[in-house]
């Protein structure tokens, strides 16, 4: 498949859904739409049909910039042996959620 832009194709959007008030928006997938309004309506139809949604964010996929797989070692491995960065040296109070 060619990566060249076809003028008759709608651009790709990434969709983020908040399932409950207070929680963060989670990436759920992508879809095609001509503009933001259509993207939100399509997201409503494609990703919230079973009551998953409380709020929808969409962003043009071309506006997302990702780290490169070949950077994985330099980016993430050094954190592996630094346990003192993890907040595991105290007791969590009962009833605390979403941490």
């Amino acid at each position: 498949m060619s990566n060249e832009k076809n003028e008759t194709d709608f651009p790709l959007w990434e969709v983020f859904i908040q399932s409950k008030r207070g929680l963060d928006h989670k990436h759920v997938g992508s879809l095609h739409a001509a503009d933001a309004r259509m993207a939100i309506e399509n997201a409503r139809d494609v990703y919230t049909r079973r009551g998953e949604g409380n709020s929808i964010w969409v962003v043009l996929a071309e506006h997302l910039h990702a780290s490169r797989p070949e950077d994985q070692g330099a980016f993430f491995d050094p954190a592996d042996d630094k346990v003192y960065r993890h907040p595991t040296f105290y007791v969590m109070p009962e009833g605390v959620k979403h941490i």
Binding site: F10, E41, N42, D45, V46, R49
Partner: peptide, 11 residues
Amino acid sequence: PQLEEDIAQAN
């Protein structure tokens, strides 16, 4: 005409 519209109409 489009996957997204297909789903919208079915909804």
